[in-house]
Amino acid sequence: MDKVSFHLSLLSYLVASLSYFIYLAYRGPLVSTLAKWAVTFGLVCQTVTIGIRSSQTGHGPYTTSFEVALFLSWLMVVVYILTEWKYKIRDLGAFVIPLVFVVLLFSAFLSKDTTFVPESEIRFWLTMHRTLSITGYAAFSIAFAAGIMYLIQEHQVKTKKLGIMYFRMPSLEVLDNLNFKVITVGFPLFTLGFMTGSIWNTEMNLPFFSWDITRTLPLVVTWSIYCLIFFGRMAVGLRGKKAAQGAIFGFITVIGTYFLHIL
């Protein structure tokens, strides 16, 4: 059952990705309706998958690398839907949903084994740590998409080559604001995730801040990048192209960190 729902969600996101791409060039009402329904259906199926998996393992989907990818892609869709609903940026889907599809497709190749999670308070801190961090990452993925859109739009306006995307995509201001707003949400969550992770470490009788070059360093780098974007804007007006590049680079380090963790 969870296999069926997993594959259905994968297929739905593929359909949605293609529809969003077509919608970039061809503004047909049918295409946008198809994209919306495909995303919604995909999310429902994925929620079922997560529900079944959690009832089997007895805890949330955040322990193995498979679960993390599953949970991240699910949260990306949730954050995307909320963003779309709030800001009505119609083409954001063309940049977020393909990413969701890739993350979910990747997870299909990971081991579906479960791991043991200790009971009680220790589990609480782990749940907090992973949920907060992954929600932060999902917000960063939206900033990543907004950053790519910003660079495309900025390039067109700057070089005076106004293609079809110039007309279809929102203004630089809207994209820059979106980038900042999602980072404003994502950065504190990620920071809290970082802190609760350290608490979990101590609960597990490890040092509060266990230093591991392959695991901790990338996290610190990621945190520093978003910290720079977050405070840089307020302090020195770090915005526009640099902020967009920062959001893209930041998300690449997020992905890199994940890979270093599962290696």
Binding site: R27, Q153, V157, Y166, F167, P170, S171, L172, E173, V174
Partner: peptide, 22 residues
């Protein structure tokens, strides 16, 4: 997109302004 794009200097300028500042 028949009426989407400005076809006078000032409307093209306004369009650009709206793509920069919304």
């Amino acid at each position: 997109g028949i009426s989407e794009r400005g076809v006078s200097i000032s409307s093209a300028a306004v369009e650009l302004a709206k793509k920069i500042f919304e």
